[in-house]
Amino acid sequence: MMVWVVAILVSLMLIGAFLVVAIPDLLGAVAASTAVSLALSVLFVVLRAPDVAMAEAAVGAGLAGVLFALALRKTESRRTRDEEAS
């Protein structure tokens, strides 16, 4: 039973991490990174670490995403969006 929960959460996390690297749109990559943090915090609950899960959900999934989105908004200009070689 626990194997399946862990397997689903780990695969969600790895898919999210792959999307962080692969999505061309940076805002989408930020959203994928918060999804990684969310799956990770559920995994921490499964691993009997409720304190760490709360911190990861509040800080990793909430605050870090807000910080990245704000920084993207501050640095976006007409040129930089397409400069990255994909």
Binding site: L26, G60, T80
Partner: peptide
């Protein structure tokens, strides 16, 4: 190559 993508990578390593 994008610096913000590099920082996102650092966040994934931390996780």
């Amino acid at each position: 190559r994008h610096l913000i993508r590099v920082l996102l990578g650092v966040a994934v390593i931390e996780a």
